[in-house]
């Protein structure tokens, strides 16, 4: 562009660095607080679920099980040749606090649930204060953009093997359509998990909320589905952050990115 004399090394270190402002401090704080809190809520929640599973089938004459999670646990233990414990409680022993500790799990769950709600409120404040909420709103163009992103993700590995160029689709907003859909649905799942949690916890006081989920078991099912949605977000989220690189990870710690517009996916 413009002809400027190359700066000396000394001047270069004194010259300011240009960064892109990414995440509000409250968004970063609540993001990291969410990691252990969600783990704890899932672990204690499944330990509560163990006491009275909502997804039941008629008693199996062989295993004596009525709980689909018991069946799944037994299958996993069988595949892994895990003989360490009771195969029927494999899921509860590995994904939850364990079996037979309802009182403890309930106390942990309430304590963490209040932290989660407070954290969610701080997140929303951070989203509004930093203006980040606009980047999370779904748009009409997202359908086509999401298809392009899916096509890109599916092609990354085959094209790398065939050594063919495989450019990233042009993204001109903070997030691509798939990210936006994921982050937006996380907020929705977060709100739903809190509402269905209150509907089960205080079904008389919040009778209107219980009716919103049809009945008591409706709230339990929604709560469980939210667990699956929130949990299944984590794996691709972590993989994609690792794939995207250090700058993306760092931006959630420090709040800025060194990737200027021209250096990014265009």
């Amino acid at each position: 562009m413009t002809e400027t004399p190359p700066p000396t090394t000394r001047a270069r270190s004194a010259e300011p660095a240009r960064v892109v402002v990414k995440h509000h401090p409250l968004v970063r704080l609540t993001h990291w607080v969410n990691v252990p809190v969600l783990f704890g809520l899932i672990a204690s929640g499944l330990a509560i679920y163990w006491a009275a599973p909502v997804f039941l089938h008629p008693r199996d004459p062989v295993t004596g099980s009525r709980d689909y999670l018991v069946d799944l646990g037994a299958a996993v233990a069988h595949v892994l040749h895990d003989r360490g414990g009771d195969p029927r409680s494999w899921i509860y022993d590995h994904v939850s606090l364990g079996t037979g500790m309802l009182a403890r799990a309930l106390r942990l769950h309430w304590a963490l649930a209040y932290v989660f709600m407070l954290n969610g409120a701080l997140y929303l404040i951070g989203l509004i204060a930093g203006g980040g909420w606009r980047a999370l709103l779904p748009r009409l163009s997202d359908v086509a953009d999401a298809r392009a992103m899916l096509r890109f993700y599916l092609g990354v590995v085959p094209m790398a093997i065939r050594r063919r160029p495989w450019p990233h689709p042009v993204i001109r907003s903070k997030y691509n359509a798939l990210q936006r859909a994921a982050y937006f649905s996380m907020s929705v799942a977060g709100v739903l998990v809190i509402l269905s949690g209150w509907a089960m916890h205080k079904p008389i006081q919040f009778g209107w909320l219980e009716r919103l989920f049809v009945n008591y078991d409706g709230a339990r099912i929604v709560h469980f589905v939210c667990l699956l949605v929130l949990g299944s977000f984590v794996v691709p989220h972590v993989i994609l952050v690792i794939a995207d690189g250090w700058d993306t990870f760092r931006s959630m710690v420090v709040g800025w990115s060194a990737r200027l517009k021209e250096a990014r996916h265009e």
Binding site: A14, P16, A17, R18, V21, G131, W256, K261
Partner: peptide, 10 residues
């Protein structure tokens, strides 16, 4: 969505 903000920081 607003454009992302770039800033010069020492």
């Amino acid at each position: 969505e607003r454009p992302e903000v770039e800033r010069d920081v020492p």
